[in-house]
Amino acid sequence: MIVTLIVAAEISWWIVLGLALSARYLLRLRRTSTALLIGLPVVDLALYALTVLNLRGGAEAGWMHALAASYAGFSVGYGPSLVRWADRHFLHRFAGSPKPLPSPKYGPERTRYEWQVAGRTVVSAVITLGLISLLVPLSAGSAHFGTFSQWYVKLGIAAVVNLVVAGCYSIWPKEPPAGVRVENGRVVERKAPAERV
């Protein structure tokens, strides 16, 4: 049942986002769009509330319950950036705005980007761990702590790996290859190799 709810929540999240962007840019209903965007966190909260109710109803705690909590945590950490990404692509596709720029690949811009990703991952992990911790007393307490404890390790590893990657980019910034002109960390021109005489 929980897996079905997670899938339904994921589909609902993207449907609500699509409706919000359509209302804003196609129908020019800015207030409706804002209301729908505010509804995105409601999808996450509903999933978590249903997870809690499932445990309170006597369901045995399992990885699916922790996954539901991690879905909510991911949405808090990555949700705003996903909305911005969808907004840019929707504008390009339906409103004639320029094609969205790709993520920076080189220099300090790439380093900054990696730290942003690491920050989102840490926020997601912290929120998820908090939500999972709240599930423990709702699932016979310490009797099911082992079911959720592995998520502490997994999320901790994910956060540390992202921080290490960002740190490596700080120490060893990625430089563009020879013959490539870069602006704001993105390739703008590839110079043809010089012809041999």
Rank of each mutant, 00 (worst) to 15 (best):
A23L: 10
S75C: 11
E114Q: 15
Y113K: 08
G185Y: 12
Y152N: 07
L26T: 11
H65V: 03
G146Q: 00
L45Y: 12
S70K: 05
Y113M: 09
S33Q: 08
F90M: 04
V123W: 02
E175F: 06
R30I: 01
T147R: 07
A46W: 15
T128K: 09
W151Y: 12
R112Q: 13
W172D: 03
A118I: 06
V161C: 03
G156K: 04
I132G: 03
T121A: 12
G62R: 11
E195M: 09
G18D: 03
I171F: 07
E109T: 00
K105D: 08
I38Y: 15
N162K: 02
A140R: 14
S75N: 15
S81E: 10
A59M: 10
D44R: 03
S81C: 00
A66R: 02
K105A: 11
G77W: 04
L101N: 09
V52T: 07
Y71M: 12
W115S: 09
L29S: 11
A20G: 09
P80W: 08
P137S: 09
V136E: 03
G79H: 03
L129V: 07
A61L: 06
T147C: 02
S170G: 12
R110I: 01
R24H: 07
F90K: 08
P176R: 06
D87F: 02
R93E: 01
L55E: 03
I38H: 08
M1S: 14
L129N: 07
T128R: 06
V180E: 13
S149P: 02
L129F: 05
C168L: 12
I2M: 15
V182Y: 08
Y78P: 02
R196L: 14
R93A: 14
P108I: 08
P41R: 14
S103E: 08
M1C: 06
L138W: 04
P173Y: 00
L27D: 14
A61V: 07
R186W: 14
A20P: 05
R112P: 00
A59G: 03
T34P: 00
S70D: 04
S139A: 15
R186K: 05
A143W: 04
D87P: 10
N184L: 05
W115Y: 15
L40K: 09
I2V: 13
A140M: 07
I132Y: 10
K99R: 13
F90I: 12
Q116F: 12
R181H: 12
S70V: 12
L134T: 03
W14H: 07
W14E: 01
V187E: 14
E109V: 02
V126Q: 02
L131G: 05
R181F: 03
V16R: 04
A69C: 10
T111D: 02
M64V: 03
V188T: 05
S33P: 04
I11R: 00
G156V: 00
L37G: 09
T4G: 07
P100S: 09
V126M: 09
A192D: 11
V182R: 08
I6V: 13
S142K: 11
A9V: 06
A20Y: 01
E175R: 15
E195C: 00
A23W: 01
A159Q: 08
S103I: 08
P100C: 07
